[in-house]
Design a protein around this nucleic acid. Structure first.
Length: 370
DNA sequence: GTCATCAGC
DNA sequence: CACGCTGATGACA
């Protein structure tokens, strides 16, 4: 992969220099901004930022931004993953050993360093190839992946006690389609893929406290339409509006918010006179109980799973946690019991007012299992 | 040491 | 200004 990417990069560098009329350090955002905004005089969308979505918008004006985006994609892939990971193989064990930090993330999630194994690419097909290099160490062993389905939305349903949202999960409905059906005022069977995509962005955006501005940027629509969509959303799920109001009230009164098991995050600025600080504090307050409770759920599941595997004298190893996903390597003769055990412990780690669903897969590599 | 960028959830 | 939580990389001061 490294040499294939090298070939692509060389071609891109040549074409970038030609389009720019000069050679420069493409990795320097300052030098790049010089070329884009001073020499080529392209419009400055967000000051002199050269961030991905700025370059995407500049694509219609010039060929250069497109090449820069390609260059960055391959450069990131090569430097951060393809070339870096093999260097970290431990000589004695033949494995790469990450470190999981338990006391870094303010929400109670784990974090992973040296290397970070929680940000291995998956979103684009090319980058996803990297996952083919992670496989079980022994012959006759495979990778098992199990991940929670929309666990944060389910936790929000539980917290908010929103009748519609809870009913939707209990009936096994497609939650993004259901949201789309209401927002776009069409029967659920007539929801188009594009509408579902929009609704998915809205469902996640709300959990992160996104406002009309961010929502309109994300969806590429006017702010007015984003306002209408958000209003329609809270009309459909009034319990969520109530959850947000109650949570913010708590943050203002008690100066903290907390997860389902009682992990607290201090929130000092929920009543700040400074609008920016207040808004930031509000978003943290809304998100932490949800993200943190999801983290607690998978931690309880991991403990229960490990305990059970020891009790049964299994050889399977739990090797990674990626926030809502667990990865195992297992010998073939443990497959049947492992799948049952893991799905059961994950789905029943906590008692909520909505069902918890776990998806899973098996394969020779991480790529094939997930 | 900080910032911008971009990889994941 | 403008979406929560992270970590790695490279540039720059």
């Amino acid at each position: 992969m490294s040499s294939e990417i090298d070939t692509k990069l060389e071609g891109l560098i040549t074409s970038i220099y030609k389009l720019s009329g000069t050679e420069f350090n493409i990795n320097s955002t300052q030098q790049l901004a010089n070329i884009l905004f001073d020499i080529l005089e392209l419009p400055q969308i967000k000051k002199r930022s050269t961030a991905e979505n700025v370059l995407k918008q500049l694509q219609e004006h010039h060929e250069l931004p497109k090449r820069i985006l390609e260059y960055r994609k391959y450069n990131k892939l090569k430097n951060t993953y393809v070339d870096a990971l093999p260097e970290l193989i431990n000589e004695k064990t033949g494995r790469i050993h990450t470190t999981f930090n338990q006391t870094i993330a303010a929400t109670g999630r784990l974090s992973s360093t040296n290397p970070n194994f929680q940000n291995i690419p998956i979103r684009t097909d090319e980058a996803r190839e990297i996952r083919k290099s992670f496989r079980a160490q022994k012959d006759g062993w495979k990778i098992f992946s199990a991940d929670y389905s929309q666990v944060e939305l389910r936790i929000m349903a539980h917290f908010s006690r929103d009748k519609g949202l809870i009913a939707a999960f209990q009936n096994g409905e497609d939650i993004h389609s259901r949201t789309a059906s209401h927002v776009f005022n069409v029967p659920i069977d007539l929801v188009l893929p594009e509408m579902r995509r929009t609704a998915k962005v809205v469902n996640f955006g709300i959990m992160y406290g996104a406002g009309p501005f961010r929502m309109s940027q994300e969806l590429g629509i006017p702010r007015k339409e984003a306002v209408a969509i958000i209003e329609s959303y809270f009309e459909q799920y009034p319990g969520i509006q109530n959850y947000i109001d109650t949570t913010l009230e708590k943050a203002r009164n008690k100066k903290y918010v907390e997860t389902i098991l009682g992990r607290r995050r201090p929130v000092w600025d929920a009543d700040s006179d400074n609008g920016l600080r207040r808004k930031t504090a509000e978003r943290m307050a809304i998100n932490m109980p949800i993200q943190g409770s999801a983290a607690e759920m998978i931690k309880l599941a991991m403990i229960a799973i490990q305990k059970e595997m020891i009790k049964r004298g299994m050889k399977t190893k739990l090797i990674l946690q990626i926030h809502d996903e667990l990865l195992f390597e297992f010998p073939n003769d443990e497959e049947e019991i492992l799948v049952k055990l893991v799905v059961d412990k994950m789905e029943n780690a906590m008692e909520l007012s909505v069902p918890i669903i776990v998806d899973h897969g098996i394969g020779e590599t991480w790529y094939d299992a997930h």
